[in-house]
């Protein structure tokens, strides 16, 4: 939010070494791909939703690629009119996970420098999540990705993980392996979520 300057922080926030307050809001946001927590979609055709952030129309090939990347190919092929199907009240009602994946495709369509996933994988099952994250890694060479998550499997493969405390301070940071090596919130939560995961496949 602060990065996109929807909120104004105290202190210094730099983007490529420049204080974000000195970058034009439009230019700054152009570099961002944002996947909101509430996975908000418009009551438009599926393809219009994905092309939402693009200035030029999306080619069919690019659209198919984005759908593939966001692990939606199977589902979209079952929509009554494919990518032309209306989303929302007058068309298909998407599940939480499908909405989140569609929002990811929408953000990727802009080929952003920075991709921000704001707890945007919570409704995606862990198997699809793994596939999706692998796709993002493959497609996003050189792209900065910020993932905010409650489920630690979403961030386990990140280069660096920041653990934020209740007061908004950084409590710990490091790689997944480093954080696991230390006793603390991260390790406890990881173990608990792993156990829960195990339980759910029982």
């Amino acid at each position: 939010m602060c990065l996109g300057r929807l909120l104004e922080p105290e202190g210094l926030l730099e983007f490529d070494g420049i204080d974000v307050k000195r970058i034009q809001v439009g230019e700054l946001r152009a570099a961002l791909g944002y996947v909101p927590q509430d996975s908000f979609l418009f009551s438009e055709r599926y393809r219009d939703n994905i092309a939402f952030g693009c200035d030029a129309p999306l080619s069919d090939a690019r659209l198919a690629e984005l759908i593939e990347l966001s692990c939606m190919r199977e589902e979209v092929s079952h929509f009554p009119q494919g990518v032309e199907t209306l989303v929302g009240e007058r068309g298909v009602t998407l599940s939480g996970g499908q909405r989140q994946r569609t929002c990811i495709a929408r953000a990727l369509a802009r080929d952003p420098r920075v991709l921000i996933l704001d707890d945007a994988l919570s409704a995606v099952d862990t198997e699809t999540e793994a596939q999706l994250l692998a796709n993002l890694r493959r497609a996003g060479q050189g792209r900065t990705v910020v993932v905010a998550a409650h489920r630690l499997s979403s961030v386990a493969r990140a280069e660096r993980i920041l653990v934020l405390g209740r007061d908004g301070r950084v409590e710990a940071q490091g790689t997944h392996a480093e954080l696991l090596a230390r006793a603390g919130w991260y390790r406890e939560t990881w173990q608990r979520q792993q156990a829960q995961q195990e339980l759910s496949v029982l």
Binding site: G26, A30, L32, P36, F40, F42, F52, G53, R106, R110
Partner: peptide, 10 residues
């Protein structure tokens, strides 16, 4: 969806 509109500069 104003937040999405703004971030995507739409």
């Amino acid at each position: 969806g104003i937040r999405v509109v703004q971030v995507f500069r739409r």
